[in-house]
Design a protein around this nucleic acid. Structure first.
Length: 447
RNA sequence: UCCUCGAUAGCUCAAUGGGUAGAGCGAGCGGCUGUUAACCGCUAGGUUCCAGGUUCGAGUCCUGGUCGAGGAGCCA
């Protein structure tokens, strides 16, 4: 009896007869020879039949099987350097095959380049193609790795609500939905405030889930629905937070390099850019960053680019600034100590410099931008209340949040890691929309 | 909200100064024993995004609109 195997296991079954269940990704025939490129969800493998080796009816069926038909194919695995596939290098010599369903002959996704609009309209098919399949396999590995690292380092996963009351920051960038007699609920932009409650019961926690932003951002780095991984730690200052950031990011990169090498190779990713990722990451202050941007601007020839790099102390970075900064480093870089005025109300001020907050962003290399944003949180109840008022936030909505500071307040810190931006960077791809199975952007909700 | 660009066969694109709308891929049929998005031959496949205008004649020029893309702003 031959075992049913997964394509990723082919190397273990060399010279054995096996079955593989999957779909016809491509078919090509050359007279008395037919090749099927079969995908089974775990990889892509070439299957071959010679006309003289199989019966005439079977050969005829193979020659005519439509792309995307679901089949079970049986045969002997053999090593062959000519065999394409992921991982490739092995092929199956067909002895039997069974058609589960012969696909219709008008499958829309021809094996060629497609425009953005067409590819996105056919996202439900696009994810079958090797590039998208590889990216999403890497996404899953990134998520597994994040959870592994935090689970192994004393964190507990406690997820936070998606439906939240009016609160946090202004409501202009929140999606709202009717909520029974309460009026409206808002889709969460962050689980942070609830995370802060959780640390006083569990010390180190993380939340992982979707977040929603109704911003009209239309760039390669933005989605309206994206996934964020948010750790929060009691008894933790900004330096310790950065250590957690660099260690967890390094772990993620190493896991992907080890476990998803064929996928990275199929994407054409230059992994030499990732091999060097090791702690410590460079840490530069906002003040130093402003100075660096000024120098970069001074040596920039292109007047348009020069204009984009205009900057003065007190502004928040735009994409051009982040990109210019990260090009100076070959590792992710921490920028810390942003001006209080551009950051959220809950960030702890710098000791002796109240105009600066204990905040930090981690910028990915190669122009991929901010992948982590975090801070040490205000632990003093009086200061927190004052900041709420300064930001014109409703005190009663934050009653529970303020109460946290009255019963066992401690220095604490946390950050949010954007999963899609991290996957974009690791995969080296151009647009964030390819890093999530069904992206939601300002212009698209289908499929 | 602003700037720029685009829409022609199922897909990716071409079409001289305004003069019969084409190619490759995909699909169907046939040929070929090592293909890598194979190759070769044949066949089918069109409301040129929509509405109006100019003209003997509009894919092409003009006006308005729709949809999409890239970027900026925005992104606690």
């Amino acid at each position: 009896m031959h075992p049913a195997i997964r394509v990723e296991q082919v190397a273990e079954y060399e010279n054995q007869e096996v079955s593989i269940r999957g779909w016809v990704y491509n078919r090509t025939h050359k007279g008395k020879l037919v090749f099927l490129l079969l995908r089974d969800g775990y990889g892509f493998v070439q299957c071959v039949a010679f006309k003289n080796d199989v019966d005439a009816e079977l050969f005829n069926q193979l020659v005519h099987i439509p792309q995307e038909s679901s089949i079970i194919v049986t045969g002997v695995i053999r090593a062959d350097k000519r065999a394409p596939g992921i991982p490739g290098g092995y092929e199956l010599g067909i002895t039997q095959f069974q058609i589960i369903q012969a696909a219709a002959d008008d499958y829309p996704m021809a094996l060629k380049e497609h425009g953005v609009d067409f590819a996105m309209d056919n996202r439900h098919f696009w994810i079958r193609m090797p590039s998208q399949w590889a990216i999403l396999r890497i996404r899953a590995m990134v998520i597994s790795a994040i959870r592994e690292w935090f689970d192994q380092n004393g964190f507990i996963n406690l997820d936070t609500p998606i439906l939240t009351p009016a609160a946090c920051e202004g409501t202009t960038t929140l999606f709202e939905t009717p909520y029974f007699d309460e009026g409206v609920a808002f889709l969460a932009q962050s689980g942070q405030l609830y995370n802060e409650a959780n640390i006083f019961a569990f010390s180190k926690v993380y939340a992982f889930g979707p977040t929603f932003r109704a911003e009209k951002s239309k760039t390669r780095r933005h989605l309206t629905e994206f996934w964020m991984f948010e750790p929060e730690m009691a008894f933790c200052d900004l330096d310790e937070l950065m250590e957690v950031g660099e260690q967890s990011i390094t772990y993620i990169v190493k896991r992907v390099l080890n476990e998803r090498a064929p996928e990275l190779a199929s994407l054409g990713r230059d992994t030499s850019q990732l091999d060097t990722i090791e702690p410590p990451f460079p840490r530069i202050s906002y003040d130093e960053a402003v100075e660096m941007i000024g120098k970069i601007r001074d040596r920039t020839e292109d007047p348009e680019q020069k204009e984009l790099l205009n900057f003065e102390w007190g502004m928040d970075f735009g994409s051009p600034h982040e990109t210019a900064l990260t090009e100076e480093f070959n590792k992710p870089v921490f920028v810390y100590g942003f001006p209080t005025q551009v950051k959220a109300f809950y960030m702890e001020p710098w000791q002796g410099r109240p105009e600066v907050s204990k905040s930090v962003d981690l910028l990915a290399p190669e122009g991929y931008g901010e992948i982590i944003g975090g801070s040490e949180r205000i632990s003093d109840p009086e200061l927190l209340l004052q900041r709420l008022h300064e930001h014109n936030l409703p005190e009663d909505a934050f009653k529970w949040y303020l109460e946290l500071r009255r019963f066992g307040s401690v220095p604490h810190s946390g950050f949010g890691l954007g999963v899609e931006r991290t996957v974009s960077w690791i995969c080296g791809i151009n647009h964030i929309r390819e890093t999530i199975p069904f992206p939601r952007t300002i212009k698209r909700m289908y499929p």
